[in-house]
Amino acid sequence: MSDKLVLAVPSKGRLQENANAFFARAGLTVTTGRGARDYRGALTGVDNVEVAFLSASEIVKNLASGAAHFGVTGEDLVREAQAESKVALLTPLGFGHANVVVAVPQAWIDVRNMADLEDVASAFRARSGERMRVATKYVNTTRAFFRDKGVTDYHIVESLGATEGAPAAGQAELIVDITSTGATLVANGLKVLDDGVILRSEANLVAALGAEWSPAQRELARKILSRIAAEEEARNSREIVAVLEQEPSGLEDGLLAFGAKVRRRGGNGRAIFTAPKAQAPALADWLIGQGAEEVVVRPVDYVFTRVNPLHERLTSRLDAVR
């Protein structure tokens, strides 16, 4: 039995670039083996990690089967594969944003929501003797959403090509597809229903619950997640340095209001605080009001903490299935 940890990342395109940048920010560089066409690589910074370069859909399959321990893939693919019980979505990564939506022809001016769609489906069946066709690659997602919305009289046409072109080509009456800007839908004469956003998806760091998790592999996971959590915490935090001739009354309450805390105090009234990035300017202004002559706000590279929320999330899910 190998104690190597397998990390599956996208094999090409913008998703690969963003995934590599995500790990690099955490001090973990994804490297290829013999060249750009090699499908195996390594993770510089943590030994005994094998990187597998796969398509986004293959990553979900490998995670669901336990062939990979970690993977970077879209939440939409996890939901479509109905793999929620087999994997743990550890953290969204801030890229790969796209929505899975229900889109109908713009010419359907009286169809604005899913309730209208049920009426259209009934009328279509009465007129043509056939069920309304929905073109999609998201078969399971579509069935679940339509069931929840009470739309039953339809037929799914599984799309193998450009789904947005199916209505114009006469292959379907409407579609369920993924879109990031909606521009392609508009270009094909389609509109998203008012309540037709099924899922707001983005890339996630996903863990396989059914993989072999030896003590050595769990330790590798802890190291990786520690760096990722430290970078994430640092990205969302700011360090504030101020010199106060005397400590203001109600300092602790003031810091609490800004979600800040004291990191350390030095001589000559110098103090260093940490605060959420969004609250840093307001905290700096408050400190000036409390007598500080100057307040410096600066980013930090990493914030390591004794409690790692990502590792705790993984451990709790693994322990629950074992």
Rank of each mutant, 00 (worst) to 15 (best):
S249K: 14
W286V: 07
V296A: 10
A260D: 07
N268V: 09
A275D: 01
F273W: 02
A292S: 11
A282W: 02
R270Y: 02
A275V: 06
L255Y: 02
G291L: 10
V303R: 13
R264P: 00
V297P: 01
G269E: 04
A292R: 00
G267S: 14
V303T: 13
G254T: 04
Q290N: 13
R270F: 03
G291N: 09
V303I: 15
K277Y: 03
S249V: 13
E252A: 15
L287P: 00
A282K: 07
L256D: 11
V262N: 14
L255E: 06
G267C: 05
D301R: 15
V300M: 15
L287F: 06
V297G: 04
Q279V: 04
D301F: 02
K261P: 03
G259P: 07
R264I: 03
L251T: 11
T274S: 12
R263Q: 15
L255W: 03
R265M: 09
D253H: 08
R298Q: 11
G269F: 06
P299G: 15
D253I: 06
G291T: 09
F258L: 03
V262S: 15
E293C: 08
R264D: 09
F273Q: 02
A282M: 07
E293M: 12
L283M: 10
Q279D: 08
A282E: 08
Q279T: 12
K277F: 04
L283N: 08
P299A: 13
W286F: 09
G250F: 14
Q279S: 14
A275R: 00
V296G: 00
Q290A: 11
S249E: 15
P276C: 10
Q279C: 08
L287K: 02
A292V: 10
W286K: 06
G291P: 02
Q290I: 04
D253N: 14
D285K: 13
